[in-house]
Design a binder for these strands. Sequence first.
RNA 1: UGGGCCGUCGCCAAGUGGUAAGGCACCAGGUUUUGAUCCUGGCAUUCGUUGGUUCGAAUCCAGCCGGCCCAGCCA
Length: 562
Amino acid sequence: MTDSSAEASDSSNFIRDIIDADLAAGKIDTIVTRFPPEPNGYLHIGHAKSICLNFGIARDYNGYCNLRFDDTNPEKEEQEYIDSIRRDVQWLGFEWHSNPFASDYFGQLYDFAIDLIKQGKAYVDSQSADDIRANRGTLTEPGSKSPYRDRSVEENLQLFEAMKNDEYADGEHVLRAKIDMNSPNIKMRDPVLYRIRHVTHHNTGDDWCIYPLYDFTHGLSDSIEGVTHSLCTLEFEDHRPLYDWILDNLETPSRPVQTEFARLQLEYSLTSKRKLNALVTEGHVSGWDDPRMLTISGMRRRGFTPESIVNFCDMIGITKKNSTIEMGVLETALRDDLNARALRRMAVINPLKVVIENYPEDQEEFFDGANHPQKPELGTREVPFSREIYIERDDFMEDAPRKFFRLSPGREVRLRFAYYITCKEVIKNAAGEIESLICTYDPASRGGSSPDGRKVKGTIHWVSASHAVDATVNLYDRLFTMPNPGAAADFHQALNPESRVVMNNAKFEPAIELTDNAIAYQFERLGYFISDYDSTSDQPIFNRTMTLRDSWAKIEQSQKIG
RNA sequence: UGGGCCGUCGCCAAGUGGUAAGGCACCAGGUUUUGAUCCUGGCAUUCGUUGGUUCGAAUCCAGCCGGCCCAGCCA
């Protein structure tokens, strides 16, 4: 569970079976994969699945994986995204062999296009975009040939060069593959290979005014890099014949094979770039790294560990079946990892003051609290105790049912690590709201057990009032109330209005590092927490990464219903 | 109704002709100074469906049903 994120997984899948077969047949000896994001947005949990697949295979087969930026559309790509993608891949624990841009290959790609033209397998089309669309046919009707389809090789060569030499405006011409306008696969009806775009490219600047499209670029880039297994999502299945056509009609350095797998779909979440972007720009979240976002950067800020994400990806598997993963799977992967590593501390999020009337007014003492109940090697910390403490308001109930194992008038409860206390009196304000509790403690129960061996069912957490550190805590819940917000007519209506609840009167025990975002804590009985990027010693801010499993809440819930 | 792909427990997922792994969830117990963790046990006579081949089928064949993807000069 605490293994490094880049550890080998024992999970097999149909893609690994293909690789095993290729290896056994002697087709290849070094496995090469690539993760090819377009730098036009932030990476999310869906990308993590692909990253784990591609980098995981390369690692397990002693091959290598490239991080290639598929940057053939200069209108949407930015340095900000490049930086974040690199950071996220590394944070997940993976190392790329090389990190090229598809745009690094523009020169070679241009030469390949010339080759196709010379073979009579590509032509310059001068129809408008609308005409091209109209002539493409429909799902059930074949397309019709462009009037420019039979231009001579010489004319095509001259026109394409002129396109490259900035002699035309955007949209005046395109380069198309000459395949089959009658193909039942629409992708094969003379797909566009190059378009004119007078836009400055983040990597090539103004060197080019023609840009290749994905289908022309991808397989050739794979081939140039020696990629053996080009893994992509299901919606590219129709592109595979075109991927193959490009490689089969050109003399390429190597012959990669494309295989498709199902993209990740997670309940109560969105991975559409457009909708994610809307959440950010419309202000429903604070940014791409808002802790509620299932972007890698959001999850990092929320307190996910890379290991938990990698383990999640192992748990869900790789298939060709469209499926939707329940949130519980992600939550379990997270809790498993955090449970193993998080240091235990006590914090009170919604405080209720308790005065222990028989405890000496100016006395204080310190208890040793284990940093981890199952890992004594992680040591202990000192937990201060005094006459006035805070407990969680939820841990007190005036009229408590029998199964409520916490504090209520006349009942005794254990303060974790400290003493047994009994509630003697409830102090209320004029409005009838509970203001504080008067309790007594049993000095003989020091450490949390009494010599007479009497049983105390409940143990609650607490913080000494005079030693407490004031803090703000963000409680996060799922961003959407519907299992499939992406299917809603308007995903805004699925937004959870209580996805973030700010508790700004929290009380921490002193032994909590306020600004180290790398330390995962478990606040006992409350969940896993981590300091936010904005946290300072003066104004501590913590994010609740995930609650603990709560079977009491489940019982309460069923009692209300039943 | 053109083409491509998919259909094994509530959600994932092994299985590749020899008689249904595992995980999550759920249920029932046990341990516990976190109603956490941990441990034990339970949880598909059945693999979308109907026929066929076979001594034997989730696995092979045929039909049917259901779902997803494709008509950007996006990726």
